[in-house]
Design a protein around this nucleic acid. Sequence first.
RNA 1: CGGGAUGUAGUUCAGUCCGGUUAGAAUGCCUGGUUUGGGACCAGGAGGUCGUUGGUUCGAAUCCAGCCAUCCCGACCA
Length: 493
Amino acid sequence: MSKEITSRAENYSEWYNDLVLKGGLADYSAVRGCMVIKPYGFTLWENMRDVLDKKFKETGHVNAYFPLFVPKSLFEAEEKNAEGFAKECAVVTHYRLKTNPDEAGKLMVDPEAKLEEELVVRPTSEAIIWNTYKKWIQSYRDLPILVNQWANVVRWEMRTRLFLRTAEFLWQEGHTAHATKQEAIAETVQMINVYADFVENYMALPVIKGVKSESERFAGAEDTYTIEAMMQDGKALQSGTSHFLGQNFAKAFEVTYKNKENEEEYVWATSWGVSTRLIGALIMAHSDDDGLVIPPRIAPYQVVIIPFLSKNEAETNSMIAKANELKADLAKIGIRSLVDSDETKRPGFKFAEYELKGIPLRIVIGPRDLANGVVEIARRDTKEKSQLSVTNIVSDIAALLEKIQQNMYDKAKSFRDDNITKVDDFETFQKLLDEKPGFILAHWDGTPETEEKIKELTKATIRCIPLDNPLEDGKCILTGNPSKQRVLFARAY
RNA sequence: CGGGAUGUAGUUCAGUCCGGUUAGAAUGCCUGGUUUGGGACCAGGAGGUCGUUGGUUCGAAUCCAGCCAUCCCGACCA
């Protein structure tokens, strides 16, 4: 047992860390709050990125790249946005080091090299982008602008956690400009739907789409749409957001266009993003005490093929050849597989290792089974072992991977649905949060004060006002004031 | 940022309270051999400025202070 994993029951946080570190996704770095994403983790991110990027392009967007640094004067232009992020900004004040005259071999910041104006390391790129859009937009003919960028951003968080909240993280941010309010709102809704579709169909993770309450809204937005997913400990994880920015940024950066009637009008804006945090969601939603469980559609490797090796060199070579042959056949229909023919490790070791890494399907090719025209397969999601005939092996594997994908989604969905409760009194609300963590649908009087009070008392926040919410008369769980609909409460990451 | 804890071999940890030859173990790594259908075994070997900087001392992994990093609990978290 070389790599022991803390169980979920023992310590959920440690379990999560163990999976990230021992599963080979990421590692701590020499920089506070910043992690190294290792090749296995980065391949996972690339697979997620590729699917999303294709969806963005299918919905008419193009990629561009804007600078890492934002001059402070631009950053402060949209007041609410600036205020919201001010506390977590890294700031560049100097542009040069020099050798320290007092300490040989050491460098110091050169006081002569102080910048006239400080540069903010972007926590998000609205400011630099809207400053650019001002130059791009004169006429209604220049609209819409549908641009996305894949980038890193820095938010100096107090307390960081691998993937879930790192000081630097990777994400994409879409920034669009529209002639009309309706068009911008339609874009905002379209993109939250793109995210929901991706997370549900590729990450096998059901989400609840909704709108944020005023206090949870993105700084500078009129409306924030969100997708909320449930983790295995019942806590919520905001997995993607799409913001209707109204004309806030257009006004702050004076971005106007001439309409057909030759009238000057402010542009309407949206922004939307998902980040490497999604990997955290993936881990916490699906994995178990034996390691990661990664859904086939985005798994770095969908299949691991392990040939049985023996002293009999001819037999060993034949098994390795069969394994490579299968890998090549799988590649023809786009299935990513890995052959492990390392002679120095025994099968049992490999089984445990690939279970830890969460590869969806394991295939063992051995002389005993092969004589009977079968191979042994083991599913990571259910741990079921069975035999598969070599006759239609490629198409059978493809079908099985789809089945695993579906099963992971179904399992996550039934877990989530089992842990959403409608509650009508505050005592039950509090009790439930402590005893059976999950989502709670409850009435709320719609005021930020009540929301804040509930947060103080229970640590639960309003995750969203679900989009498909049925209207229903009721009384606010805390104040008893009238309410027209239930909202989604949970403790969150 | 407040409270608590930790940092010693690639990894996990013992040793620190009570300072004193050459800093240990397991695991991993390397070599050779025997093995191989669920984390193999035997033999030999390599590997550590004890997180870092400074202080106390004849002498520091051990005592003191600063800094850095990590974990847990809060605060914070578009």
